[in-house]
Write a protein that binds this DNA or RNA. Structure first.
Lengths: 249, 249
DNA sequence: CCAGGACCTTGACCCAAATCAAATGCCCCA
DNA sequence: TGGGGCATTTGATTTGGGTCAAGGTCCTGG
């Protein structure tokens, strides 16, 4: 069956696809996934709830269906850095690793489509197509991590905030509404503290920079968690990287 | 044939293994790799030489045989961040990507074992074992990138320096000599500027922190590029993370 | 053996972001 | 309707690391 973009792009969870419910679905991949029935289950978490603690045994891997989660790492003295951002269609867990290396926390209400580890690993071996899809996704994640390294290592606080908004606007189509005249509305699925942990800043600095961007008209705030972007191009400029790749630019 | 740890761990390049000459070799993987003959070639680069520029076409992928290279990303105004560190056995290039996303520079003299892209990709499809090895390596790289995010986001300059030395000591067995009484000697394959680009610092700060660590007896310097670590445990303490995983700890 | 240049160190000063400390707003539930 | 608790904002102050500037060291090639 041919790829059905409309069906794949829907916000409804695909009931069959094991990995990426939006870009790959039963309608695209065919019957090879039918065997997955019976090895998967859904779980929901509330904002702030911990999915797994680093060091805990994790007997499943999962695909994010809705909401957002963060992978988090800590130094002994409590300094915290987010090291992974999971949005719908992202994959959680690592084949072959039974013990979680990072703490996973729902930063907003979260819905996961989970697969029991053992049968999933068996599936990977038997089904090179899924394995290769997983490799591709991992490579994309690595690229994202590398952009993040540049952000953490070399960008100013203001550029970091702008970059985060750009990332959310580009990746989280579900969070974004386009308004007439090109205005964009972003529902922030993170607290200021989670933003700070993502950006390697303190929450006070995040708050101050949000205020500054607002004062200068780069963004508007409607409540604390809704950001309106009058000019996306302007926001991208503020983010420091000129890459015009990706949607919305 | 069973895994031969001694043979795999040798510093000699494995003439057959396409991906990781130390951990996987013809002796472990068997004949499935024989078909690789004829699709591979070696290249050497001098310290400072650029392997590929971001945006350039790259018609091969490669395995690092000796030396060290850095992947580097830049903002328009020239701020530079290293986003990948390639040591012997690391893999360079991404299947399916013909245009390099990052600039690759040899930070020391470098030897690559290269594979022409097309036949390599064909091989990946036909040989799930190699594909799965590549997935595993990519996941390891992602883990390393995540530790790096923590380093850039939350560590002090001093901790960053100590962390880099720990990483080099753990990963680059080829660079490290153990002396009696547990002393370790590290040959730094990077300039101070490359260290700064890795750590998200300026070269002046790197130099200052090296001097401080020396003054306090955490390290000794023999010339500019040879670091002697009297107590590795002490160095790990200075690095901020208490993880005692990995060799040498 | 000396000159030039690349690489590194050190000093003085400055500034962006952290830290410490108070408000303020907001939501939920009694 | 009001109060408790959390998230957020804002202010005052400090500080780690950046910036600018001046040497120093070592290697190489003439």
């Amino acid at each position: 069956m041919p790829h059905d973009a409309a069906l794949c792009a829907t916000q409804q969870p695909c009931e069959i696809c094991p990995i990426r419910y939006r870009a790959v679905c039963a309608h695209c991949e065919g019957d090879e996934l039918a065997e997955l029935e019976g090895m998967k289950f859904y779980r929901r978490y509330e904002a702030g709830q911990v999915v797994v603690w680093a060091g805990d045994r994790m007997d499943f891997v999962a695909s994010v269906i809705a909401g957002m989660a963060g992978l988090t790492q800590q130094l002994e003295d409590g300094r915290t850095q987010m090291v992974g951002l999971l949005l719908p269609s992202d994959f959680l867990g690592r084949p072959g690793r039974e013990v979680a290396a990072y703490t996973v926390t729902a930063t907003s209400d979260l819905m996961l489509c989970c697969f029991r580890r053992k049968p999933f690993e068996k599936l990977l071996i038997e089904n090179p197509r899924i394995a290769s899809r997983l490799l591709e996704m991992t490579l994309d994640e690595l690229d994202a991590a590398r952009d993040w390294l540049l952000l953490l290592g070399r960008k100013s606080a203001r550029e970091k905030i702008a970059s985060l908004l750009v990332i959310l606007a580009r990746r989280a189509a579900a969070l974004v509404k386009r308004r007439p005249e090109g205005r964009i509305v972003i529902e922030l699925p993170l607290t200021r503290e989670a933003m700070a942990d993502y950006l390697g800043l303190t929450l006070e600095t995040v708050s101050r920079q949000m205020s500054t961007l607002k004062r200068e008209g780069v963004i508007e705030l409607d409540g604390k968690r809704r950001v309106i972007v009058p000019s996306f191009v302007r926001l991208v400029t503020e983010s420091g990287d000129d890459s015009d790749g990706g949607p919305l630019s």
